[in-house]
Amino acid sequence: MPEPLLSLSGVHTHVGPYHILQGVDLAVPGGGVTALLGRNGAGKTSTLRTVMGLWRASAGAIRFAGLEITKAATPDLARGGIAYVPETMSVFSDLTVRENLVLAARAGPPDAARLDWILTLFPALRTFWSVAAGVLSGGQKQMLSVARAIVEPRQLILVDEPTKGLAPAVVANMLAAFAELKRTETTILLVEQNFHFARSLADTVAVMDNGRVVHAGRMAALAADDGLQRRLLGLSLDSHQ
């Protein structure tokens, strides 16, 4: 079996006095979508932040593309091929849509064909190309945040709840865009509370609780097993439909 593109083994993360991740084991195979599920406060965002080097793991090891990255600095991880779409979207509100994307293309001006492809995925961004990102709607900001992560080809993108608070029509656009992105080389680690969204995209799944991964396997298997869903996802399943 080939080594996963990203793997965490026994990762612990402390933030101040809080012991947040308590031994996370997670494998993200290359080339597909892995969903990371779990109820509020389970540690999903913390896992992504730790992978991205925004928080430092206090124990355990993280490997990416065959390299140990546990102690790597955030900019080096980005340069090494990992992109991050945070839960808060974090678009630069004072900068226009164009300027946000110009900054995201670190190696130089964005590739025209690729940019065109992205703007086809998210037509709203083309419409509001010269508008300050701060005045966009929530859905448009989310699109920009995703677009920023993929404006340059990346091996792995970490996406944190891209459907949070979005209208159903925008969720549909997002789903179409991720389905399209999935057809490229990019590997996606997708944190979601919306089980339907996650199920439509993901090949593999991991479920977290209390700072640990409590279940990992094929998405198809979880999708077919109502009892397992209820046990693992509990209320969060119903409350997000």
């Binding site: 709203a124 709607s137 656009n173």
Partner: peptide, 14 residues
């Protein structure tokens, strides 16, 4: 009209 919703939703530019 679904997916075009946020395309047409004009931002309120102050």
């Amino acid at each position: 009209m679904s997916a075009s919703l946020d395309t047409t939703l004009k931002p309120v530019v102050p």
